[in-house]
Amino acid sequence: SHLLQTEPGSLAANHDASTDGSLRTLLTLCDLLNRELLVLIGWAKQIPGFSDLSLVDQMSLLQSGWMEALLVGVAWRSQSAAGEELVFAGNLHLSEAQCRAAGLADVYEAVRHLTVRYQGMKLRLEEAVTLKALALANSDTDPVDCPDALQRFRDGLHEALQDYELSRREQHRTGRLLMSLPLLRQTADRTVQNLLWLQRQRRIPLHKLLLEMLDAKA
């Protein structure tokens, strides 16, 4: 219930006015990602146990897991979209053709695959917010500064997911959700690689925070 209360909800896209066509789509998406990152960092601080981590571990988790956490939101919003579109924001639905034109073919394929998986299990909001926190907590940090605090953070979230599924007598869904984490990581990696490639190829101007977070992945 704490995660539900602190869930920021989705931002609206600011359609870039400096250009048009596929570059406009890309710039709009990157602006949205940058603002989502700002919200994500504020949100992370409210997850129970996150503030007990050392600053070094907080940074490592965010640098490693930010895209996974953001993509849970995209997959969640895209579950009920018409025409197999990806819903990056309420006012930014992208079809396969639009993604392809913007150089995001790989992002489309990967995120669509992830969306289908969650569609298949009819992901619920409670599960989506917990999964988002779990993805962040589970991201790989090496070396870990304070292993005990990190373990407590992970255990707390795992327990919350188990308690939720137990309360609905659907314990089997805990395993199903955890088993989706490898696909989530793979999807995030492909998305990051696609963006890094685009940044090099098209030399798109990126906002500082997004650039910093992509650099941590490069």
Binding site: L38, I41, G42, K45, L55, Q58, M59, L62, Q63, K208, L209, E212, M213, D215, A216
Partner: peptide, 15 residues
């Protein structure tokens, strides 16, 4: 930390 200045600053802000 120098390289990841913005993230560092955002995490240190209390709000």
């Amino acid at each position: 930390k120098e390289k990841h200045k913005i993230l560092h600053q955002l995490l240190q802000n209390s709000t």
